[in-house]
Simulated assay, not measured.
Amino acid sequence: MSTKQQEKSLQTMRELMDSAQALFNSKGFAKTTVAEITDGAGYAKGSFYRHWKSKDELFLDILAAKLGNYREERARRIGEAETLEDVLDVIWDFLDTIVGDRNWSKVFLEFTVHAAGDSELRRKLNKSIYRLSNDIFAEMVGSHVISGYSAKKLGALNTALFEGFLIHDLLETGELSREDVRRAALTMIRTLAISGEASS
């Protein structure tokens, strides 16, 4: 494929991804069709299937692109972090951006539930390219854990707390703020990283 053809192909992909994201935000993942995505971008359906086998694959590419932008900033800030609190601030600043974009957080949760029913899709979604995985979390905080507590388990606890809050926030219960959950996560992780057990 020539350079010009590659550029045209990338442009087509970007336009289809932009169309899909706008539709996902307004209609949700399940209610958006491939035909609507291609119509919105001004392409025939064949253009979609030249790049993706399914709407699931398209969503994963959108998710990877969003997280790719974060990873560049995260790498810079992690390099400057000196304490466990500094590292956790970097992680939660990223998580806050997801909660702050209510349309995207709703679509992300919808897709996560959708993926839970498909073992292959679930396996893909658990890869670090698509989320703040337990492995990545462990890599970032591992050198600050002095208790011997599993850094991967800390990551899983942090993610469970965050994803639980996403549901709580979308249901608009109003009992907890992002700051409440962020402080609770920092306290939990700091306690387990230092002593290995939660305080009573």
Rank of each mutant, 00 (worst) to 15 (best):
M1Q: 10
T97N: 10
G68C: 10
R76Q: 12
L125Y: 07
K106S: 08
N25C: 10
F111K: 03
A198W: 08
I136N: 14
G79T: 10
Y43I: 07
W92V: 11
S2Q: 04
S9M: 07
I62M: 05
T3Q: 03
D39S: 06
V87N: 04
Y70W: 12
S199H: 08
F137Y: 15
G155Q: 05
V34K: 05
H144P: 12
K106E: 05
S200Y: 13
S54Y: 05
L88M: 14
S143R: 15
L171K: 08
A20N: 02
Y130R: 14
K31Q: 02
L109Q: 12
K8Q: 13
W92S: 11
I189D: 09
F59I: 03
A198C: 07
N103E: 01
L171N: 09
S2T: 07
K4P: 00
G40A: 10
T12A: 13
A64F: 01
D169S: 10
E179A: 15
Y43Q: 12
V141D: 13
H51Y: 11
N126C: 04
F137G: 13
E110K: 13
G164T: 01
S54F: 08
S195Q: 02
A81I: 13
S150V: 06
H51R: 15
D61V: 11
L170C: 06
A41S: 08
I62K: 01
T173M: 09
R14H: 07
I37M: 11
I62L: 08
K4T: 12
Y49K: 09
R131L: 13
Q5V: 04
I37S: 08
E15P: 01
R102P: 00
K153C: 09
H114Y: 15
A35V: 15
S143E: 15
S9E: 14
V99I: 14
D56C: 09
L63F: 13
T32N: 00
A156W: 11
Q21T: 11
I98N: 05
K127R: 04
E85V: 04
K8A: 12
W104P: 00
G155P: 02
A138I: 12
K127C: 03
A64E: 08
I98W: 03
A20H: 01
T32K: 00
V87P: 04
K55S: 02
I189P: 03
I98Q: 11
V87M: 10
R77K: 15
G196H: 06
I167N: 02
A44F: 10
T191C: 02
L186P: 00
L166P: 02
Y43G: 11
E197P: 15
A64L: 02
R14K: 13
F59Y: 14
A160D: 08
A198L: 13
S200I: 15
K53C: 03
S54Q: 02
S9Q: 14
